[in-house]
Design a protein around this nucleic acid. Structure first.
Length: 773
DNA sequence: CTTAGTAGGATTGAG
DNA sequence: TCCTACTAAG
């Protein structure tokens, strides 16, 4: 069986690549997921690699789920057995399996950012440090960054009071986490890498198990993740990484674009494959996207091309303010409905969440359905976290942070004072808070009613724990926690719409526990069907699928973000651009293209690296569009309560002016391109700022005035090799026709090329190579 | 212990 | 302007 038949040549090359390091630069819409899934399918079937020896790592649960789903269709049985999961899920599982060697508790609880902050505050209090001086937020950042960079406390310089104190907090925090049997997200990777790098035998054993390693979105990996990948691939060296440096938009979160750019330096014999054919967008959309991203200096040279139709020119609209901008969306919706386009094919992107409100209000006012992706996440809601905290304490009695969270939720008369005394009792005896519930006595000042209440709370937890040990179903356990804790009753009694909504959320959570249990039971692969031979004496790794236990459920919940709600029905989508990666829509409206907002920058200060990341963000936004791309910018906009004048985004003047429709404004014509063009002047209220100005190709950015009519200009900064000459897909410029794409090449000197110019069809011209000025 | 009142802050956000 | 997080009064 072959999985390579319906692939294009570079895709096939990546899928069939035999072994050794491989880096695939996969442009937007070039069939990246396809390559990974086909490669896994090919490994498991044609090359008979046992699925459990294949490790495929992604960043989001959604991506992992999609991969498994697509695999199910390609090669049944493989997806369930292969190790497919997020970095965090894979590490969590490996840590639990090897808890002793990694020096962590095998029943650790995973703390999210909020829990982590609570723990830091507690440490701060223990160390008698002032929260104003050492802000928990900053400390969390310090610790997180250290772990991302694989720096232990002892590796950090502690010159100066501030740093020395931070390191000290870091140490104490880690100790406190250990006592609580808890790991934060950073720990999941950091602890495993520490163990792998320290314990040679452990590394050889684990790396020996994974014959093939695949990593998706490699441009988003941080340093710790790179070290992990290096360690896990160190035995077989069959490492395939896939990504796109142009779509790296998480630098602020630790993503190191260099990981993919320097892959060949890291792995000297690495093979490089570039997927440049785009199957998603029209030519004009790709052209616009390229014109912008091309201004980035530091990127792997590549250019998307497509066999899709030329399409309509992208549209740029200037509006008065954000309300006017919302009107653009309404008009777009109205027009699309007339054209019979489904509402869920329209998306509005913005740079910050704050921009969504106006769109929401406008859509609600017009009676148009919408959904917002991102924003408040289900598992982040206070009531959901409360109920989960109960379950976590049941699962892990050492989890003090979760216990303290619900100590007085619902209110049961245990206040600050009692809590303080309880903590002291636990600290003095060196026991967990849970244990201290029953033991705290008069010596800590806990007596009378307070003592009663603590004991009663302890009994509640014990009862729930017993229930769990008796093996009742997850749904039943959730219900018992909801009712037994009195939380349900307390919400009912509040009798407010908010409380009602909260109660509803909690029942939804209980429902999710039930369905998790059912799904987990159904998903366990039956070992009867095991079709692969295993090496004698070696256990196959258990599949990375959850069982129906409470621990599994909690782990899944901790590692899951917004339940990717199905796009139910006819609704316009609103989201930040960051949330848009990997998605596609027929029609895309990118809003707020104004200096300081997008690109986001502080007034008067622009870090070139920041601007390049913003430009990648614009690139991601544009390449989401299949057929129609619209952009808007406002002349003024309310920010933090006051109206401010806005300058059009520099990205707008980087667009190919001859192939864009400008309404209400057009960027000042600029003969420069590339680096110089980036600095081109902005003309917010240009000479021709009347409505509906159809763009004319006044000045095509292009070759110097001297070039002839039958010549096109190849761009060296595209990264094309002068020796190699023109290649199909490459972008060229013509004095009069503007930017076009090479469709065919006829060798010669100079070579002749067939070039497609949007709106002007194909021409055969001479290819001239010019050094960039 | 709850509730109201206010000071401060404000990109982007996976797991 | 709006939201979160903490403080002071009920």
């Amino acid at each position: 069986m072959s999985f390579a038949s319906d692939l294009n040549p570079p895709q096939r090359e990546a899928v069939l690549h035999e072994g050794g390091p491989l880096v695939v630069f996969a442009g937007a819409g070039s069939g990246k997921t396809r390559v990974i899934t086909h490669r896994v399918a090919d490994l498991a079937t044609r090359r008979h690699v046992p699925p459990w020896r294949i490790l495929a790592v992604t960043f989001t649960n959604k991506a992992a789920g999609e991969m498994r789903e697509r695999l199910a269709r390609l090669a049944p049985g493989v997806g369930e057995r292969a190790w497919i999961g997020t970095f965090h899920a894979v590490c969590a599982r490996l840590l639990r399996m090897n808890a002793e060697r990694a020096g962590v508790s095998s029943s650790f609880t995973i703390y999210d950012d909020q829990d982590q902050r609570a723990m830091i505050k507690r440490v701060l209090r223990d160390l008698r440090l002032d929260e104003k001086q050492h802000r928990p937020k900053e400390v969390a950042h310090f610790i997180g960054e250290a772990k991302q960079r694989m720096r232990r406390p002892e590796d950090l310089s502690s010159s100066g009071y501030r740093e020395a104190t931070q390191v000290r907090i870091f140490e104490e925090y880690d100790k406190a986490m250990k006592r609580a049997g808890a790991l934060d997200f950073g720990d999941l990777i950091y602890r495993l890498v520490l163990a792998l790098e320290k314990d040679e035998a452990f590394r050889l054993e684990l790396a020996g198990r994974f014959e093939h390693l695949l990593v998706d979105e490699f441009q988003d990996t941080n340093h710790a993740q790179l070290r992990l990948v290096r360690a896990l691939a160190s035995v077989h060296r069959n490492l395939c990484v896939v990504g796109d440096d142009d779509q790296s938009i998480y630098r602020w979160r630790g993503a190191e674009r260099r990981n993919i750019l320097d892959f060949q330096r890291d792995f000297e014999d690495a093979k490089v494959v570039k997927l440049e054919q785009n199957y998603r967008s029209t030519q004009r959309i790709l052209q616009a996207a390229y014109a912008v991203i091309h201004n980035n200096v530091d990127r792997e040279p590549k250019q998307l091309w497509t066999e899709n139709e030329e399409g309509a020119p992208p549209v740029v609209v200037q509006v008065r303010d954000e309300w006017d901008e919302a009107r653009v969306l309404l008009e777009l919706v109205e027009q699309s409905q007339q054209d019979g386009l489904a509402l869920d094919e329209i998306v509005t992107f913005y740079r910050t969440h704050a921009q969504s409100r106006v769109f929401e209000e406008a859509l609600r006012g017009a009676g148009v359905g919408y959904r917002i992706v991102g924003g408040q996440r289900f598992y982040d809601r206070a009531e959901v976290k409360d109920l989960l905290a109960y379950l976590r304490v049941i699962d892990n009695p050492d989890d003090d942070i979760s216990l303290l969270r619900v100590l007085n939720v619902p209110a049961r008369g245990i206040g600050k004072t009692t809590e303080g005394r309880l903590l002291e009792a636990a600290g003095r005896r060196g026991i967990s808070v849970r244990e201290a519930l029953g033991l705290a006595g008069p010596e800590e000042g806990v007596k009378g009613k307070a003592r009663e209440r603590l004991r009663a709370f302890g009994k509640l937890l014990d009862d729930l724990t017993r229930l769990k040990d008796e093996g009742v179903g997850l749904g039943e356990l959730g219900e018992a926690a909801l009712k037994g804790s009195g939380y349900g009753l307390s919400l009912e009694q509040q009798d407010s719409p908010e409380a009602e909504a909260r109660l509803e959320n909690l029942w939804e959570l209980v429902g999710s526990m039930q369905s998790f249990e059912q799904a987990a039971r159904a998903a366990q692969p039956d070992d009867e069907a095991e079709q692969h031979q295993e090496q004698p004496g070696e256990e196959p790794l258990a599949p990375l699928l959850a069982d129906a236990s409470l621990s599994s459920y909690l782990e899944r919940v901790s590692l899951e973000t917004q339940a990717d709600e199905a796009p139910e029905g006819e609704r316009v989508t609103l989201m930040t651009i960051h949330a848009a990666k990997g998605l596609e829509f027929d029609t895309v409206l990118v809003t707020g293209l104004e200096e300081e907002l997008f690109p986001m920058s502080r007034p008067g200060f622009t870090d070139p690296d920041d601007i390049e990341e913003e430009r990648r963000l614009a690139y991601v936004a544009f390449t989401r569009a299949r057929r129609r791309l619209l952009m808007s910018h406002a002349r003024e906009r309310r920010l933090f309560g006051r109206y401010r004048r806005c300058q059009p985004s520099r990205f707008l003047s980087e667009l190919p002016a001859e192939d864009v429709t400008f309404i209400g404004w057009r960027p000042r014509a600029s003969s420069a391109r590339g680096v110089t063009r980036r600095e081109a002047a902005y003309d917010p209220f240009g000479a021709d700022s009347h409505a509906s100005v159809q763009a004319e190709a006044q000045v095509a950015p292009g070759p110097p005035p001297g070039s002839a009519h039958d010549e096109v200009w190849l761009d060296a900064s595209d990264g094309c090799d002068p020796e190699a000459g023109p290649q199909p897909g490459m972008q060229v410029r013509h004095k009069k026709f503007g930017v076009g794409q090479v469709r065919g090449v006829e060798p010669g000197s100079p070579p002749k090329v067939r070039v497609r110019f949007p709106g002007r069809g194909e021409k055969v011209l001479l290819a001239t190579y010019l050094e960039p000025a």
